[in-house]
């Protein structure tokens, strides 16, 4: 079970890495996560860490919540989330501890989960990539329909799981194996290759990917050693350069 943390999605841009390859990146802001409580085998039947993330005005915190945070000696946070952790690993974290960017040390790829943008009630073309109907040649008022949804008297019903129109988006989506491009320690930013679910300003949950890191096009570096030669070096130079100083 891998530990996770929370971060805010700031948006997307593109950057050049050392080799002159342009990569699309999502910028994530990682404010400190606090260990608010622990779930233990004896008490809860499973082991996990409860982390708090994000600022909140004191006025908005009700009394029971305040007490919960007080127990850990942590300022109340806006979000609370649990991450499953092995029993052994659980001992490494103390209640009240702060988890920062050191979480990403030596990590090349991440799994990032967030709530996708809501699309409302969507038709089959948008929701399931159906082809629709031809725009001409006598098509009559069925341009974006899905076609037939079943057979005849046998089986006489619509099969379960038939893809139809309905609500789309606003659900938990996990993007797996996103490559870490740059870590900017001063600004608490992580730059990850590709898109991340959700709109700007939303909180996403980040876990260390269990998958093998993908090679970057034109750069390579699928293994940790290989990568530490190239992109990680670029990340350090970038972290300095982004602080207003020139590379």
């Amino acid at each position: 079970m891998t530990m996770g943390i929370m971060a805010t999605k700031l948006g997307m841009t593109q950057i050049f890495i050392e080799e002159g390859v342009r990569v699309p990146v999502t910028v994530l802001k990682m404010d400190p996560n606090f260990v608010v409580s622990k779930k233990t085998m004896e008490k809860d039947g499973y082991t996990a860490l409860q982390l708090g993330f994000g600022q909140i005005r004191a006025k908005l915190v009700n009394k029971p919540t305040k007490g919960h945070f007080q127990k850990a000696n942590v300022e109340p946070t806006r979000f609370l989330s649990e991450f499953r952790v092995d029993e052994k690993e659980l001992a490494n974290y103390e209640i009240g501890a702060q988890i920062g960017l050191e979480f990403f040390e030596g990590v090349l790829s991440l799994d990032i989960a967030g709530v996708s943008k809501g699309k409302g009630f969507a038709g089959v073309m948008k929701r399931h990539n159906f082809a629709g109907f031809p725009a001409s040649h006598g098509t009559h008022e069925t341009f974006r329909h899905g076609g037939s949804i079943g057979m005849r008297a046998q089986p006489g019903k619509v099969l379960k799981g038939k893809r139809m129109a309905g609500h789309m988006g606003d659900e938990l989506v996990t993007m797996k194996n996103l490559r870490v491009i740059r870590i900017m320690a001063e600004e608490n930013l992580i730059l990850v290759r590709g898109a991340v679910p959700g709109s700007k300003g939303k909180v996403v949950e980040i876990k260390v990917s269990t998958r093998k890191p993908k090679a970057l096009p034109g750069v390579g570096g699928a293994t940790l050693e290989e990568a530490s030669k190239n992109p990680m070096k670029a990340s350090k130079a970038g972290a300095k350069g982004a602080g207003g100083k020139k590379k």
């Binding site: 805010t8 802001k29 930013l189 970038g238």
Partner: peptide
Amino acid sequence: MANMIDLIEKSEVTG
């Protein structure tokens, strides 16, 4: 916080 993105973009303009 969108200005963080501006910051990154500006730091990219080096030439």
